[in-house]
Design a protein around this nucleic acid. Structure first.
Length: 424
RNA sequence: GGAGAGGUGGCCGAGUGGUCGAAGGCGCUCCCCUGCUAAGGGAGUAUGGGUUAACGCUCAUCGAGGGUUCGAAUCCCUCCCUCUCCGCCA
């Protein structure tokens, strides 16, 4: 949620920033609602104050042993007028809340213009696209022996699921372990385990609700339960409604979870293989930092994700997303795209975002500022480190050999029982 | 699933209809005292909204939501959560 004070004081500025995200802010609608709110609130509070004062006088009279009947009569229909004013104010406030909650986080000034994916800007590349002296296969063909079994998954569940067998599962597990160990031992993250089912309040906190409900899997029944679309949701919400001590910052968590996404609206996209699944494994990095540290943290966190790719020897490029391609809650996003020989293209494997105080304001995630002694909103930054399923695809496709076997990257070999090759 | 107890400020904990946003303690901040440390004394210390140039004023908040009442942390209803015992279970 953005700061409504800013909306009041610098509305046009906010409107211009949001236009870069392709969002048309109806500022006059907000301002007129807010003006009505102010008027109504002042009247309501005056009535409330009147009643509080009267009730206290009654209390004092009774305590002194006086007859309070006269005072009680004077209160008259104050209660009814107050109730009416309150409900009118509440209805208006709900309307304003729905309006402001649907406003995305404005992009940072360093975010490039543009509304489509093609407008994203490449910052740099690492490595060269892998070259082969034979025709490389994609991961589906490499796993056709049953290591990657899409038909079995279709029988069990439906499309966009996969069954892995034997060494393919071990490869996925090895990648997960390697990523977590690297972030814990070299990048200073604390590993954490969280629920894979969360409530609405958590999804609201990180910004998936109310706008992105169709992307989520919800559970039947009266409990307001949803499967997590990313570990970002439970991990960040650990700090919902809390005030942490400044000495605890920065908070760095790494968390491995499955992620569940309905992929509504991507019918027909990436239907082949493991690129876009309803369920996939991901190692997520989440940081909560002081406001002045968040931009440096975004670069550092993206660097941590890059380090995984470098250690694995996977070629990639670094992209800055344009305004229109940014997520609802993000002020700036850096995507890492890994080279996939099977697609002859770079594909997203990590997305690192700075949310500034947008999520923190929704969650009331704060720290106590040692200078002012007052609570202040934290900044949140997170990113994949990395999407494990896609990393496995990248390893398979980039390390494939002419006979269809897969060479195992050096850093993974300790996690694969010392082996250097897989035949799936 | 059954029975019971309980959810109050950063933490502990008192408070069963009125001057209670809430005693007391811990912690924290500032000051005093003490030639180090420890101990001691004093003052301050919840959060959010609105309004104000500011001091301030004001409203809300004692798990959540309803209700009773002139007035609710306190009484009633519903829900959520935690703990203890029993049952079941990985």
């Amino acid at each position: 949620m953005l700061d409504v004070k800013r909306l009041r004081q610098a509305g046009e500025e906010v409107r211009a920033e949001l236009a870069r995200k392709g969002f048309d802010l109806d500022l006059s609608a907000f301002l007129s609602m807010d003006a009505r709110r102010k008027d109504l609130q002042e009247r309501t509070e005056a009535l409330q104050n009147e009643r509080n004062t009267a009730s206290k006088a009654i209390g004092r009279a009774k305590a002194a042993g006086d007859d309070a009947a006269q005072l009680i009569a004077e209160v008259g229909d104050l209660g009814d007028r107050l109730t009416a004013a309150k409900s009118e104010l509440e209805a208006l406030q709900d309307e304003i809340d729905r309006f402001t909650q649907a406003i995305p986080n404005p992009p940072h000034e360093s975010v490039p213009d543009g509304l489509k994916e093609e407008d994203n800007v490449e910052i740099r590349r690492w490595g060269e696209p892998t070259s082969f002296n034979f025709e490389p296969k994609d991961h589906v063909d490499l796993g056709v022996g049953g290591a990657l079994d899409f038909e079995a998954a279709a029988k069990l569940s439906g499309s966009r699921f996969v069954v892995l067998r034997g060494d393919a599962v071990r490869l996925q597990r090895a990648l997960t372990q390697f990523m977590i160990d690297t972030h814990v031992n070299e990048h200073g993250y604390e590993e954490i385990y969280v629920p894979y089912i969360v409530n609405r309040a958590s999804l609201y906190g990180t910004g998936q609700l109310p706008k992105m409900e169709e992307d989520l899997f919800s559970l039947d029944g009266d409990a307001d339960y949803y499967l997590i679309p990313t570990a970002e949701v439970p991990v960040t919400n650990l700090y919902r409604d809390t005030i942490v001590d400044a000495s605890e910052l920065p908070i760095r968590h790494v968390c491995h979870t499955p992620c569940f996404r309905s992929e509504a609206g991507s019918y027909g996209r990436d239907t082949r293989g493991m690129i876009r699944q309803h369920q996939f494994e991901k190692v997520e990095m989440v940081q909560l930092v002081k406001p002045e540290d968040s931009w440096a943290t975004l670069d550092a966190l993206a660097g941590h994700a890059e380090m995984i790719l470098q250690k694995l020897g996977l070629p990639y490029r670094v992209m800055t997303l344009c305004g229109g391609d940014l997520g609802f809650a993000s002020a700036k996003t850096i995507d890492l795209e890994v080279w996939l020989p099977g697609q002859d293209a770079y594909r997203e494997i990590s997305s690192c975002s700075n949310f500034l105080d947008f999520q923190a304001r929704r969650m009331m995630a704060r720290y106590r500022d040692p200078q002012t002694r007052k609570p202040a909103l934290l900044h949140t930054i997170n990113g994949s480190g990395l999407a494990v399923g896609r990393t496995m695809v990248a390893v398979m496709e980039n390390y494939q050999q002419e006979d269809g076997s897969i060479a195992i990257p050096d850093v993974l070999q300790p996690y694969m029982g010392g082996r250097d090759t897989l035949s799936l």
